Simulated assay, not measured.
Amino acid sequence: MIRLFNAFILLCLSQSALAVDIQPNTLYPKVQLDTSMGKIVVELDRTRAPITVDNFLTYVVKGHYDKTLFHRVIAEFVVQGGGLDLKQEERPVDAPIINESGNGLSNSFGTIAMARDQNPHSATSQFYFNVAENQRLDPSSRRWGYAVFGEVIEGEEVLTAMSNVETGHNAKLKWPDFPIKEIILEKATLLPRD
């Protein structure tokens, strides 16, 4: 009985350690996204967007992104995901984070940024890839922008293919630009330090 209890404690501790190991001392952590269309690897920039990177990595390590849908695809604009499970239901999220859009990173092709609503500080788990030069999403003296926090370093061709899928209106969610054939984020993995 004591051995079983000790094994249970060790299991809990190991899962707890896993939940908080987001490589806090790695300035440019890498995450692999295994999708139904292929693999994408992103390199994140903790020097420019530390809060956003830590937030994203926390969701990655907790498994939040595993078996989720890319639910918004607009050719020559964005590919967005990170919020819906395979039943098209929203996953629970942590508290919103502050907007780090003034960090010097631009919404250029192949970058990853945080999705949000009209409130500039409303980003939680949803992210998007820029599939065009979207500098209009950068901050200006008159508006908040959308926080870029990394870039695709592998799998650009996968991202391009994703951006060109057929989309339509989703009757259940009443959302436009929903892929007709599901694009699934099978697994997101924080890669080991170089």
Rank of each mutant, 00 (worst) to 15 (best):
E182M: 08
V31R: 03
E76N: 15
A147S: 15
E156W: 06
A171N: 14
V31E: 01
N55S: 11
Q32F: 08
V53G: 00
E100Q: 12
G150Y: 04
A75F: 11
E133Q: 15
S122Q: 10
L84Q: 11
K67L: 14
G110V: 08
L159R: 03
V131N: 03
G110A: 12
L13K: 07
G102E: 13
G155D: 08
T47S: 15
G63W: 14
L86K: 05
N130T: 10
E133G: 05
G155V: 04
L105C: 07
R72V: 05
P176A: 15
N107F: 05
H64P: 02
L33K: 02
F56N: 02
Q88H: 12
K174L: 11
N164Q: 15
L10P: 01
S125V: 00
Y28Q: 14
G104C: 12
F127D: 00
M37C: 02
L185M: 06
N55K: 08
V73C: 06
V152A: 03
A188N: 04
P96G: 04
D85P: 09
A95K: 12
K174W: 06
V131R: 05
V20M: 11
T111Q: 01
E89D: 14
D66Q: 10
V42H: 01
I184T: 08
D177E: 14
V61D: 07
L10W: 12
G63S: 13
I112H: 03
F149Y: 12
K62R: 14
K181R: 13
V42S: 03
N130A: 14
P29S: 10
P29A: 07
V73A: 04
T160W: 01
R91L: 15
T52D: 06
P176G: 15
M1Q: 10
A147E: 08
V152G: 01
Y65Q: 02
L84S: 06
A17V: 11
V53I: 08
F5V: 12
G104S: 13
L137D: 05
F149Q: 03
Q23I: 07
S14Q: 06
S106A: 08
K187D: 00
T160C: 03
T167A: 12
D45L: 07
L11M: 13
L105Y: 04
L69V: 01
I98H: 09
I51H: 10
A171Q: 15
Y59T: 04
R142P: 00
I180R: 05
